[in-house]
Amino acid sequence: MTERLRISDLKVHYPIRKGLFRRVVGAVRAVDGVSLAIPTGATFGLVGESGCGKSSLARAILQLQKPSGGRILFRAQGQDAAATDLTALSPRKLRALRREMQIVFQDPYAALNPRLRVKTILDEPLRAMESLGGAERRERILQSLEAVGLTEAALERFPHQFSGGQRQRIAIARALLSHPNFIVLDEPVSALDVSVRAQILNLLIHLQRRLGLTYLFVSHDLSVVRYLCDQVAIMYLGRIVESGPTDRIFANPLHPYTKLLLAAVPAPRPRRGRKPVRLQGDPPSPMNMPEGCPFHTRCPDATDECRTQVPQLRELEPAHTVSCHHAERLAVQDGPAGAQAMALARATA
């Protein structure tokens, strides 16, 4: 399986400036040394709560935000040899590569310029990315619209004349215009109503199958991530704390944060009487990161080691990595189910 994207040790730090001369006095470490790889044609889920750095990471990948360090290797279409490091590209070469990678944002109300007709919203990026004649561009736009289930009638209308779900379809159509092979989906269904959300999820799956797209799906919604993604990485305070195949993460979460996150998701099934363990407190500010493991301030199982030593990502099951000093001990403590599952997975590998 080839990789569409490989990120190594990516960092996005925002300087904190103070005083008359705007001296740099520190940094918000929004993304702090993240590495991951996305196989071609897969959907990779990036999960975390607000402020964990998942959107900064998504934007840094597309170079909408300059990374402070690390490499982003992207394999463009028809380039089966080497992947390109996006962080080292000249602005001109980057612009040429942009057509291969696109983004869909969360808020369908902010994603479309309210003053332009849909035809202009779709024509503008196409002009910038491809040198096509007017008739060809129109052809492309109609293809894109059709792919997302809209008709030519949409072209002459303004964004406010559409519902939230339809706007998100237009935003997806815009992302498809240049025939990209990689799309970052930054919370694309979080602002939508449940019934419309299912329409968009179906559309995304359908498009992926038809066009062979690779998705990076950024979300805080675990039920949607579980449904859509092949692989998942859980972020906490700018770092990945656990990643692996979706089934494994949900069946056998290894990091205490993942466990508590899963327990906190309200399931649409009444379950009276049982009160799950709750994660206490709030995440620390990324301006003022704790020593040691970033999660130790809220972790029910933290030890002295956690307060001083930063845990590294370790592979405990095939392709399932976790950054916790005590993952094995906790898996045993969780009961035989967790330990057995892990042993089984090891044996079959």
Partner: peptide, 13 residues
């Protein structure tokens, strides 16, 4: 809603 047990059945919006 996506099925709570993680099955990948097609949703019926």
């Amino acid at each position: 809603l996506p099925p709570a047990d993680g099955r990948r059945v097609e949703l019926t919006p």
